[in-house]
């Protein structure tokens, strides 16, 4: 049964990489059931992430947000700060797709705080880029400029000419 769970996870990932997102969802749902059976919270967390990602490409952003929230909750329980940061970044982007910019900002700020704590300059740069865009969408140009300048500083530091 444990091997079956891993096989479902691998199948889900393969369908995902092939662009078969419905099949990816079915496989990851099976993987999730088996992870729960075993109380394997890491596998459960991975299944939530994979399901969130697949729902993004299915255009079902509300479903993606629900799974990313479950990922975030488990990442906190498992005390995995890197995964917590990644979940916040995914939620920020998903709420941008949903055009809910206040919520997008809320999650991008959380991502920024963790990226700073982890001294992840690439993550910090991406958070600032995203925040600049979200504040622009809200017409808050002062905050938008603030984050655009931070993004510029970090991009220069990293030698990211693009």
């Amino acid at each position: 049964r444990a091997a079956q769970g891993r096989a479902y996870g691998n199948l889900g990932n393969t369908h995902y990489l092939l662009g078969n997102f419905r099949k990816a969802v079915s496989s990851h749902e099976q993987r999730l059931l088996i992870a729960r059976e075993f109380g394997d919270r890491s596998a459960e967390r991975r299944a939530y992430s994979n399901l969130g990602n697949a729902f993004i490409f299915l255009g079902e952003f509300e479903m993606a947000a629900e799974y990313y929230k479950k990922t975030l909750q488990l990442a906190r329980q498992l005390k995995d700060r890197a995964v917590e940061a990644q979940s916040c970044y995914s939620l920020g982007n998903t709420y941008t797709l949903l055009q809910d910019y206040e919520k997008a900002i809320e999650y991008h700020l959380k991502h920024l705080a963790i990226a700073q704590e982890l001294r992840d300059r690439v993550g910090e740069g991406r958070a600032c880029w995203s925040l600049g865009n979200a504040y622009t969408a809200l017409g808050n140009h002062e905050e938008a400029v603030h984050f655009a300048e931070k993004h510029l500083d970090i991009s220069r530091e990293l030698g990211d000419r693009n």
Partner: peptide
């Protein structure tokens, strides 16, 4: 406004480009 909308989508598009190859492996 239209140009800002395009910029706004860009950071999300970059994320989605990365996401295409992002799988949590067993």
């Amino acid at each position: 406004f239209q140009r800002l909308r395009i910029i706004q989508v860009d950071s999300v598009r970059r994320w989605m480009d990365d996401l295409k190859l992002m799988t949590e492996c067993e």
